[in-house]
């Protein structure tokens, strides 16, 4: 009996993985078909954006933070995870309507579509990260990554945080559209300046540091940088705080998703079809 239930659970899990993979692949195919440069364009577009930011930052402030990590890598370790986080969260907030035609296949649920999109975004930004790491390693001709396991773990943690926040906002935003609008605005604007992308946490004066340290992305980004050089100082940064946010946001998101999934399918009520008691 237990064996059969385990087998069933395993087959369901494998099916789930297959569906999420299929959604990610379809999204990649669609983006390739729509863009000018095919699959390469899907990777080149965010790479160009990040390269522009890098160039601007280096031009404006010269090579400021090169003491512990190569400055290009240091900046890439801020920009890439942050843009990945914002992309995943924003797509999760607005991705259900976009993928509406996919739900023609009833086996596919909105969560699968969101997870597929998040997976693809993580793959794209992960590839970019790899390009930067290998590029800098080739430039300096030495191993620049101290603990690859921690780096991968932190990188995935930031992606999961984006997914959790996006999922929670999607459901809450369905009930309160204002919340979705606020969070979408905050994601790219305020968080960009408070996530330790342009500056390390150690240069922030102690009296202001706690204003930055509320932001879990700042923790994630600084922990990621430390995985490249253990001597990189990260005062006040806590892995526990970061992972509590990751687990909490995903747990909360899945909990409210489970209780409100129908909301994402519900059609808009046509005027004149309300029942007598509906307005109560």
């Amino acid at each position: 009996m237990i064996r059969r239930s385990l087998g069933l659970a395993l087959s369901q899990l494998l099916l789930q993985i297959r569906i999420v993979g299929a959604v990610a692949q379809r999204e990649l195919q669609l983006r390739s078909a729509k863009g000018l440069f095919g699959v390469a364009g899907v990777f080149l577009e965010p790479l160009a954006l990040i390269a522009t930011f890098l160039a601007l930052r280096i031009l404006i402030r010269s090579s400021g933070e090169g003491d512990y990590i190569n400055v290009v890598l240091w900046l890439a370790l801020g920009f890439i995870p942050f843009f990945m986080f914002a992309d995943i969260a924003i797509k999760a907030i607005s991705g259900v309507q976009k993928g509406g035609d996919l739900y023609f296949y009833r086996r596919l649920r909105p969560l699968d579509s969101l997870m597929g999109n998040a997976l693809l975004t993580t793959q794209i930004f992960g590839t970019m990260m790899l390009v930067f790491v290998l590029g800098v390693a080739a430039w300096e001709w030495r191993a620049i990554l101290y603990s690859p396991g921690v780096a991968i773990f932190q990188f995935l943690g930031i992606a999961m945080l984006g997914f959790g926040l996006g999922l929670s906002t999607l459901i809450v935003g369905h009930r309160l559209p204002f919340v979705a609008w606020v969070i979408k605005s905050v994601l790219r604007r305020i968080l960009l300046w408070t996530s330790c992308i342009f500056f390390p946490i150690r240069i922030i004066p102690i009296e202001f540091r706690h204003w930055i340290l509320w932001n879990p992305i700042a923790h994630g980004v600084e922990l990621l940088r430390q995985s490249f050089n253990p001597a990189y100082p990260i005062p006040g940064v806590s892995a526990i705080y970061f992972w509590v946010w990751v687990v909490g946001s995903i747990g909360f998101g899945l909990f409210i998703y489970g209780n409100n999934e129908e909301l994402l399918y519900s059609p808009e009520q046509l005027a004149g079809t309300e029942r007598p008691g509906d307005e109560l």
Binding site: S11, L14, L15, R18, I19, A22, Q25, Y105, R107, L108
Partner: peptide, 10 residues
Amino acid sequence: RFAAEIYSQS
């Protein structure tokens, strides 16, 4: 292929 990934038997 997309439909098959969702509905085909393993």
